[in-house]
Simulated assay, not measured.
Amino acid sequence: MPQPRLFLVYEPEKACLDRLVDQGYPQERAAEISSYLAQSTDLAPEFADIWREAGKRGITFTPLELDEAAATITSADPDTSLVWTLTDGIAYFRGGTAPALARLAGLRTLGADDSLFALCQDKFRSGAVLSALGLPVPQAGLARNGHWLVEPPASERGWFVKPNRLGAKIGIWPDSHCHDLDHALELSRRVSSHYRDDVVVQPYVAGRNVRASFLDMTAHADMSSLGVFLVESGADFQTMADSLALYGDTGAEAKSTGFYVEPELVPLAATQPLADAEIRRVAARLVTGLGLRDVFSMDLRVKADGTIHLIEFEVCPGLPCFDFRAYCRAQWSMSLAEAMAETAARRLVG
């Protein structure tokens, strides 16, 4: 019988950049957009470590570039194969096709089904679904190139403006938190010009940034295994410039020169245990009501009084990012390579 095999499907940063340039994006804009795939760049040097850890557990690790995935996945053995999608996307990125290809071929997948890969990449639609589930998400308007498609609700603290489908970050420029709706429409024109995207316009939510990460390494973990951390970066929200300084080649250069320091992660339960418990309840609701499983993350804002706001969820969290690595060490006492291999082995060999 063939040895069980883990396929890790990823879209390379360079392939995305070249495609965007071919579609007419200026080089600078294409580089900014493709930077959201830097996790595939950051993880590639560790493929050998993952392969070694997988081998210790009786499985074969096969990293697979997205453009090669269709032919390889559709010819794989459904009884011995598992597909883990590293990079998602439905607009600028194409990784959301990987779980659909796996389903077409009858292969098992690690992570949510392909419908959620599409939903979480559209912030306006996902917010509507999360609201229908009774979860604490900010209401939102939607604007396209200076025109309202849906007007946002009133807000005494101003509004937050972010692209609707570009990556998973919560802001692009320092003025993404604006104080009048004319400015919000101007930002929508800027986003349309730079990235060809609509914008979500939400009432600004005060508070501290929280990242919740989950990896079901044992195949039967519950929300007690969720890692909930305050992200102390010294900034109110992450901009495109902050993102570029964290990951990929640009991030490596920034860290080597001392330009950027990784945010500090502090367990939320240490200071706000009730908010921590509420976040775990929300995560459980996402599992039962939405179908999240195996691996996901959430971005939230937590106020001083413990009130939480769910900003967005990800079915394809940045595995090699500092926060997910820290979660693997804190929750599972494993390196990222060990945690990935163990998670796959529990599904493939029991």
Rank of each mutant, 00 (worst) to 15 (best):
M240T: 14
A252C: 03
K162P: 03
L20Q: 06
P138D: 04
M340W: 00
Y204E: 08
I73Q: 01
L290S: 04
P203W: 09
G318W: 00
I279G: 00
R29E: 13
A269P: 00
E314N: 14
T343C: 13
K123V: 01
P263T: 08
G227I: 04
D249L: 08
A100M: 08
C178W: 08
E151C: 07
F61R: 02
R57T: 04
T250K: 15
D113R: 09
I90E: 10
S126F: 10
A270L: 13
Q27Y: 12
A48C: 08
A284F: 00
A38C: 07
D22W: 02
R293A: 04
S35A: 13
T41W: 07
D242Q: 09
V201R: 07
M1C: 05
S75Q: 13
L187N: 01
R19G: 03
T239R: 09
D216K: 03
I59H: 03
A344W: 09
L226D: 04
G289T: 02
D276V: 05
A15T: 12
T239N: 11
A245H: 07
R280F: 01
P203Q: 09
T87E: 06
R19P: 03
E28F: 15
A154C: 06
V287N: 02
R211L: 15
E186S: 10
G146I: 10
R52A: 11
N209G: 12
K303Q: 15
R94L: 14
C16Q: 04
A143M: 04
A98M: 11
I59T: 10
G58V: 06
